[in-house]
């Protein structure tokens, strides 16, 4: 008995070692599998504050490039809109219908402005931290976009910060389609470069060619349809040969992410409230 005790005392560091490793892996797996606590992540108050302070300085660095991008995008949209307006007036001969349409688009969605305060690219599972949280109306599973295209989906929220799963995460899966032909598949990321992702499950009979634009499908409640994702860069067969794998060049430049918008479908909130009421009523 005494020998046994001595043995334990002598090698006590082994137990501490195993204990600490078990705790670490428990944290790791818990974070990877459940929407658990946001406590050990950068959305907690301390880390959020540190990142926000640093971002106030570094946020200015890329402003020139970002401005150029925005101006370019604005001009493009302006031209597109003009052409569409012409077409529509031609077809409907009613200019008030266009105004009505503009209002309708915004009616369905709430849009929150947020700033990226932390971002990673090189991990297998990257996360983005933004400086808006529950107090600002952000809830998990809201869509996040920036001026160029889709960024990701809100994962965890704390009072003032949220963590977003960007496209660059093995957990991310976004339903999207080819703009021209409406065939749809799932956007996944297989590691590697932060500029490319893969669309899986694209049917073999689908029609598309290199350079086609991929947009969100609007089949899920997260994103409205038609938000740009990227362009077709390369086409390959899937392993089972039943579908195509499309390599997509993403519009969003994750290395330069700064300002993003969180979009929430209003009905989604309504539905959640309804469910809450139902649960409350049962109690």
């Amino acid at each position: 008995m005494r020998n046994l005790l001595n043995f334990f005392l002598k090698y006590n560091y082994w137990f501490l070692f195993i204990l600490l490793e078990v705790i670490s892996f428990a944290l790791l797996f818990q974070f990877n599998h459940y929407q658990g606590s946001a406590y050990f992540t950068s959305s907690n108050r301390l880390a959020g504050w540190a990142y926000e302070t640093a971002n106030q300085v570094t946020g200015y660095f890329h402003l020139k490039d970002i401005n150029n991008d925005l101006v370019k995008k604005n001009v493009e949209l302006e031209l597109q809109m003009e052409r569409l307006r012409e077409k529509l007036t031609e077809l409907t001969a009613d200019s008030s219908a266009i105004e009505q349409m503009k209002k309708d688009v915004l009616k369905e969605y709430d849009i929150y402005q947020a700033k990226v305060i932390n971002n990673s690219l090189t991990h297998a599972d990257n996360y983005i931290t933004i400086n808006k949280g529950e107090n600002d109306g952000i809830r998990s599973e809201m869509g996040v976009i920036d001026g160029n295209g889709v960024v990701g989906i809100v994962y965890l929220t704390s009072a003032n910060y949220s963590i977003v799963i960007p496209i660059l995460n093995s957990k991310s899966s976004i339903s999207c389609k080819i703009q021209r032909s409406d065939y749809f598949g799932f956007l996944k990321w297989d590691g590697g470069s932060s500029q490319y992702a893969t669309v899986k499950d694209m049917p073999r009979h689908s029609l598309f060619s290199l350079g086609d634009t991929i947009v969100t499908s609007g089949h899920s409640a997260v994103f409205p349809g038609g938000i740009p994702v990227g362009t077709v860069e390369d086409i390959a067969d899937s392993h089972d040969g039943l579908s195509y794998l499309i390599k997509v060049k993403l519009f969003t430049d994750f290395a330069r992410l700064n300002d993003v918008r969180v979009i929430a479908r209003k009905e989604q909130e309504e539905l959640k409230n309804l469910e809450k009421q139902l649960k409350g009523g049962k109690k």
């Binding site: 070692f17 600490l20 490793e21 705790i23 670490s24 892996f25 428990a26 944290l27 790791l28 797996f29 818990q30 974070f31 050990f40 992540t41 950068s42 907690n44 301390l46 880390a47 540190a50 990142y51 932390n118 990673s120 991990h123 599972d125 996360y127 931290t129 963590i163």
Partner: peptide, 15 residues
Amino acid sequence: DMFSNTPGMNAAAAT
């Protein structure tokens, strides 16, 4: 880990 959103990963390696 807290700062880089990888709970447990750096802790396991550092230990």
